[in-house]
């Protein structure tokens, strides 16, 4: 029975039976795994506060032969992100980010870059960063990491960079910007101003440590957020329940 000790983020959990919990973990070295924590609902000794949503933990995982389900015997809490729970909007965004990662990654497929992105995003949410720009950056970096980086360098139809354009459009099928000459049949709502394109291109390349310095004003946010969200969701091809919650609750929460 192999034993693993690896940093992990708790993506989701479900009650199982009288006192157990099934935990979905995004681990650094094993990727996404599902684990059972025996007695987690009752035991204050072994898992007090450690197996709650979004927590950054270091569990000790036992692998069983012929079973995809690992067993958590012990867990160290590295960062509980205690501020997320105090603000409903932060809670909604943290849940959305975790669900997106859960939907993108396959079981047991380690992805260090994605792990760092999620950890960074949860830290930013916990520290009270502006959530709408954070969400745009998260979508953009997620797409880049999983191999669907949107092309903001040249028109995806004519392959040319045309400066001095009044607007660009976004083509979901080709995953990039289209110059105004080639964008005659694209809907108006897919439009991006040159300033937004420049900002998104910069956000794609900047290191995570420096990303918080980027400033998204209202216009780039309004233009890019729906496009990136739709692009991610169309690639996923399945419903993200937290997104529905976010959209529905925005008015009440704000």
């Amino acid at each position: 029975m192999p034993l693993h000790k690896t940093p992990a983020i708790i993506l989701n959990h479900k009650d199982f039976g009288e006192s157990d919990k099934i935990i979905t973990l995004f681990t650094y070295s094993l990727g996404k795994i599902t684990s059972i924590a025996k007695g987690a609902k009752r035991s204050r000794k072994r898992f007090a506060n450690q197996l709650d949503l979004f927590s950054f933990v270091r569990p000790i995982l036992w692998e069983k032969q012929h079973s995809s389900l690992t067993r958590i015997d012990q867990c160290d809490l590295l960062q509980p992100f205690a501020s997320i729970r105090k603000v409903p909007e932060r809670f909604a965004y943290a849940a959305y980010f975790c669900e997106l990662v859960d939907a993108w990654v396959k079981d047991r497929d380690p992805h260090a870059e994605l792990f760092h992105l999620l950890l960074w995003a949860l830290r930013m949410v916990d520290h009270g960063a502006s959530l709408a720009p954070l969400s745009v950056i998260f979508h953009l970096r997620l797409l880049t990491i999983v191999g669907y980086a949107p092309n903001f360098i040249a028109c995806v139809t004519c392959n040319l960079w045309k400066g001095g354009q009044v607007f660009y459009s976004f083509n979901y099928e080709k995953g990039g910007i289209v110059c105004s000459d080639c964008a005659f049949n694209l809907p108006l709502k897919n439009r991006l101003s040159p300033g937004t394109v420049k900002l998104l291109s910069l956000a794609q390349k900047t290191s995570l440590a420096k990303l918080s310095r980027l400033h998204f004003s209202a216009q780039p946010l309004a233009e890019s957020a729906p496009i990136l969200e739709n692009f991610v969701h169309s690639l996923l091809g399945k419903e993200i329940k937290s997104y529905r919650f976010l959209s529905r609750s925005h008015e009440c929460i704000r």
Binding site: L53, P88, F91, C252, I253
Partner: peptide, 14 residues
């Protein structure tokens, strides 16, 4: 829990 606390915060806001 995270969800319980967030629900309490939401209600407190309302």
């Amino acid at each position: 829990t995270v969800a319980g606390e967030a629900t309490a915060a939401y209600l407190a806001g309302l």
